[in-house]
Amino acid sequence: MARYESLLDACGGTPLVGLPRLSPTVPEGAPPVRLWAKLEDRNPTGSIKDRAALFMVRAAEEGGRLRPGDTILEPTSGNTGISLAMVAKLRGYRLVCVMPENVSTERVQLLRMYGAEIIFSPAAGGSNQAVATAKQISAEHPDWVMLYQYGNEANARAHYETTGPELLHDLPTITHFVAGLGTTGTLMGTGRYLREKVDGIQIVAAEPRYGELVYGLRNIDEGYVPELYDATVLNRRFSVGTRDAVLRTRQLVDVEGIFAGFSTGAILHAALAVAHEAVRDGRAADVAFVVCDGGWKYLSTGAYGGTLADAEDALEGQLWA
């Protein structure tokens, strides 16, 4: 528990903590309904993505795709880039991240600090320009290795082999698992494991519903569903808007003292929905949900203070999860 050979060995094994104040109150004599938070911000770089990054790099090494000194290319502005930068540094690879130039300054600083190189795509061109830039770079450097987290089985396997067993060990009475839906790796891996071990387990997805500016760029015929996604692993899927995500993020720190990013707020919103349903139906429930990361990287959005409307405006057009 307390001593590890290296930082990479300290990945996972995160605490599961009860939320006695945020769990819904049940009528006297009714079965308990409890919320449990899996603190993934306690991973080496502060997010759940450390698990996937480590497994993807190891799988690529074992499969002979990555050799010492190779360059890894990842189009990401988020936590995966930060996790990969740390793993790449410790395992001896170069990491190049492609991202739009309008991402938050903390992210750029963090990535550079961990040693990643960044190629910016112009913000003005929106995501179309970002995609064009990423395409051009990949064409110029076919020898760079792209781990492609959206289709990499090692991403889901990280959670099948670690997150799932940890949850079951710490909470054998688990009835619901709630996590965010991005690459879908957390839900696919943890969900498959828990479905094999726990009868009647409910696997619940919370996906962020961004401001209109984000979707405005999208054409319905050019949509994308990650290759890892298998809808049969899920029981339900909630779409959580910016306002609800911010509200829950603030509630989590205000009531339980857990300072998390906004994707966690979206997940908590869905977790509370299923918890309240269990209370209504008079069923016992142990609802475990994922705290993806801490709130530090999002402070500059200003969305932790002021009115909810202000926060919603501050996050409009941003990929906050």
């Binding site: 990401t76 492609v98 990423a134 959206y150």
Partner: peptide, 26 residues
């Protein structure tokens, strides 16, 4: 609510999907 399918990390997966042919070269 009707929405195009662009769940989490929209930039990352759009870019990743667009350059997935990179994998063939790799």
């Amino acid at each position: 609510t009707i929405l195009p399918a662009v769940a989490g990390g929209a930039f990352g997966f759009a870019a990743a999907a667009a350059i997935s042919q990179h994998r063939a070269a790799a």
